[in-house]
């Protein structure tokens, strides 16, 4: 019987090959982009200017900083704006810029004025784009079949909303913000989003079981290979199950300590899911033949 292609580290042997360039800093940029944009969006909804400002700063300093640190030639970063017609990197870059400018004007404008409304809408739309574009960026790559799925932007959106909700609850409980809506609503939203994220992650993984051989190889690395422990413990265990149980059993009314723990656990899961999805990205064998 023909053997299937191995996963090779040696570049002179045919087989599945891991992508090795997008790792920690790109995962950090994705993470900060999503939680910052999520917090910004939630803050528009809850009417918290401090939350919106915090979200904006997380995007600009966290995401922008991680991207700059990652670039091979950061001094030329502005060139990354030139091709939004075809490139998702350029589109994301534009969205961040627009979010920054519109967000600052929105925060500075007197509430209720026409300028405030207009820039609130522009900042909100660009924040939404920042939250989901990583998913489109990954989805647009035919090279790595694990990422090449329409579920990727959906995953990004729900993780972003969950991160934004957790951070809003955290800011509320440490007394940094006052909200125009009740904390109970946020707490219920948090529970709903954790469950939704769990379901989306399961659907995504199930969809990959019938995808191409390279996607299944990625899945093997993630669920049964060297990354399985990190996936089950950090992403599923801490990031989703622990946060759900703590939110459900102890509840956010247990105080700032519990809310901080829930937020920290959620953020750990959030960072690691995208970090691990980047790490297990696998290319198909060079001629596309799957057996030898």
């Amino acid at each position: 019987m023909a053997k299937t292609m191995p996963l090779v580290g040696n570049e002179f042997v045919a087989g599945f090959r891991l992508q090795t360039e997008w790792a920690g800093l790109i995962a950090a940029a994705f993470f900060f982009g999503k939680i910052g944009a999520g917090l910004f969006l939630m803050s528009l909804y809850t009417g918290s200017k401090v939350g919106a400002l915090t979200g904006l700063l997380i995007v600009l300093i966290g995401k922008g900083g991680a991207h700059l640190l990652y670039l091979g030639r950061p001094e030329r970063f502005w060139r990354g704006l030139t091709r939004p017609r075809t490139s998702w990197v350029a589109r994301g870059f534009w969205a961040m810029m627009i979010m920054a400018v519109a967000g600052v004007i929105y925060l500075a404008a007197p509430a209720g004025t026409a300028v405030w409304w207009v820039f609130q809408v522009i900042a909100g739309l660009s924040a939404f784009f920042v939250a989901v574009y990583d998913g489109f960026l990954m989805n647009s790559s035919p090279a790595i079949p694990l990422w090449n799925t329409a579920l990727m932007p959906v995953l990004c959106l729900f993780y972003s909303l969950l991160g934004g909700t957790s951070l809003s609850l955290f800011l509320l409980h440490v007394g940094a913000v006052g909200l125009a809506i009740g904390p109970d609503f946020l707490a219920n939203l948090e529970l709903t989003l954790i469950l939704t994220n769990l379901i989306v992650v399961i659907i995504y993984l199930l969809s990959m079981t019938s995808a191409t051989a390279a996607a299944r190889e990625s899945l093997r690395l993630l669920l049964r290979g060297p990354y399985a422990l990190a996936f089950y413990s950090l992403v599923i265990g801490i990031g989703l199950v622990f946060t759900f149980l703590l939110s459900y059993l102890a509840g956010v009314e247990s105080g700032a300590g519990v809310v901080s723990l829930i937020t920290a656990a959620d953020l750990v899961g959030h960072f690691f899911i995208f970090f691990l999805l980047l790490r297990v990205g696998v290319y198909s064998p060079v001629l596309g033949k799957l057996s030898i």
Binding site: Q19, W22, L71, G72, F77, S87, S141, A143, G281
Partner: peptide, 19 residues
Amino acid sequence: KCIGCRACYVACPYKNRIF
């Protein structure tokens, strides 16, 4: 013109880009 973002690296299905 290259900024070293390596978007091309993850986009090339043949892994033929080198940083």
